[in-house]
Simulated scan of single mutants.
Amino acid sequence: MAEKRNIFLVGPMGAGKSTIGKYLAQQLHMEFYDSDHEIERRTGADISWVFDVEGEEGFRDREEKVINDLSELQGIVLATGGGSIKSKESRNRLSARGIVVYLETPVEKQLARVQKDKRRPLLQTEEAPEDVLKRLAAERNELYLEIADYVVRTDEQGAKLVANHIAELIGL
């Protein structure tokens, strides 16, 4: 039997990477991983605590290692953190080790999904959440596109339908 390819979901916070990833993994009978949850498991603390203690740079170092470790597995669906693509090494690893699906979502939809979520450190600032999301989109959208094998919009369909669409796109 041919070895299973990995599927890596990238995109901004609130795009639905974790929710869609779980459905996709279930549908394809693959293991599901979430890089943020793996960081929390390894550190024994939540993402906000890691940001508070180590700053974004410390968090990104941890994230890069987790993505390296997880992307070496075979036959997984991995939901990455929204900023994971800031690392050139992570972009290269994701691109080389699997199929990358960019879950594209407009800022308005992201805002509706995440504005009350206190577990998102980048939104816990004096800056208005909408301004943060717009700034992050300007910084990151080209990086998502750079490594994407497929681009799928997540703002008009439910997570199960998006997962079905991804499975059809990649021929699994």
Rank of each mutant, 00 (worst) to 15 (best):
I170K: 02
V162S: 02
R5W: 02
I170V: 08
E40Q: 15
L28N: 10
I39M: 06
E108R: 10
V50T: 07
R135Y: 13
G14P: 03
S87K: 07
V77S: 00
G11T: 04
I39R: 08
G98W: 07
L73K: 15
M13G: 10
S48A: 15
T80G: 12
P12G: 14
R135W: 11
R60M: 12
L103P: 15
T19W: 02
I76Y: 06
Q115S: 12
A79Q: 07
E156G: 13
E54I: 01
V50N: 09
V114Y: 02
Q26I: 01
V107T: 13
E104S: 12
N141F: 11
D36V: 13
E63H: 12
R97C: 07
A45Y: 15
L143N: 08
L136F: 14
K22H: 13
Y23V: 00
V152M: 00
L9M: 06
Y150P: 05
T125N: 04
R93N: 05
F32V: 02
E64I: 10
L123D: 12
N164Y: 05
V162P: 15
L145R: 14
H37L: 14
G14K: 10
V132M: 09
E54W: 10
S84P: 00
E139I: 06
E89C: 00
R60E: 04
L133N: 05
L169I: 07
E64A: 10
P106R: 06
K134S: 06
P129R: 10
I166E: 05
L94Q: 08
G55S: 03
A148N: 07
D131T: 02
V53K: 15
L9T: 03
A45K: 14
A167E: 07
